[in-house]
Design a protein around this nucleic acid. Structure first.
Lengths: 150, 150
DNA sequence: GCCATTAGACAGAATAACTGCCTATATCGG
DNA sequence: CCGATATAGGCAGTTATTCTGTCTAATGGC
């Protein structure tokens, strides 16, 4: 009995979710490894939730949390972490006495630039493997998928 | 000075890594939400590292850890967690006195089947959105990317 | 001025994975 | 058979990431 499990269900094997996870995991490992070699050894993947979303003129914690899709407590934790590491500075918001304004330091700006460059380079290398046409098609398809899954 | 940050670098916007992450996150949330509604409320996403890799005849902890790409301690933690929840049973390995054999219980088999079905259904719905041709192309492209990123 | 809303802080917990060290067993060369 | 080495897993402790719940303080409309 119970010998009718489907080990590889069709000729297919892996679901999209797992493929996306694998690809993301490898890209993340690669980019943060290169960032480490570029002198940003204290940056961790979670920090990108802030670094990806911060405004050049500075942002408030709630706005960063909103953009990153996480709670303000979690974003406050990341803010504190990056402030201790010297990537961001925290000051009062001139327009709202309750709020703080998170701004990138020079090191923070360098980190954002480096991460953006490494991400672009990774994409460029994959574009060479896939070909420009396929790469554009993949981008289009992925944006479509993310929109549908909203 | 330092006013030359590239806010949206090209007309492009998002890198592949982030798109993969977003898509994976939404799929995972969806599938585990449906699993919860299907009576598997105590399953957490991390458990899939074991459930995806366990052999129908049972597996050892080291093999599961190897396949999932994590340490044996982490896999032992998941094994213990799933054993307490009644999804797997742990017995001695008949061929190796050092080893234990992790086998799925009936509930564990039901969970594996359900998760596999939900994953297939999610893929099927996305295939409707994208069209069969585009879906197959996406699968091919993703496998190619994962292979290149090894 | 009062009060509902908002920004953030503080405390605690849950989840997920790690490193380091230890024991028991297995296996292989002599 | 024995000792060296490798392997399976256990135990203790730590780090990282994010959550809930509760609190204070400031804002802003009326």
């Amino acid at each position: 009995m119970t010998d009718n499990l489907p080990p590889p269900p069709s000729g297919d094997g892996q679901r999209l979710a797992q493929l996306f996870h694998l690809a993301y995991d490898r890209l993340r490992t690669r980019i943060y490894g290169q960032a480490r070699d570029a002198g940003f050894a204290d940056l961790r993947p979670a920090h990108s939730s802030l670094l990806r979303n911060i405004d050049p003129a500075g942002s408030r914690v709630v706005d960063l949390a909103e953009r990153a899709g996480m709670t303000k407590q979690s974003m406050a934790y990341l803010t504190d972490s990056l402030a201790k590491l010297g990537y961001v500075a925290v000051g009062p918001d001139p327009d709202d006495g309750r709020a703080k304004r998170i701004v990138l330091t020079e090191r923070g700006k360098a980190a954002v630039d480096t991460l953006a460059r490494l991400s672009r380079e990774a994409d460029a290398e994959l574009a060479i493997t896939l070909g420009e046409t396929e790469m554009m098609r993949l981008h289009t398809t992925m944006r479509q998928l993310v929109a549908v899954l909203d």
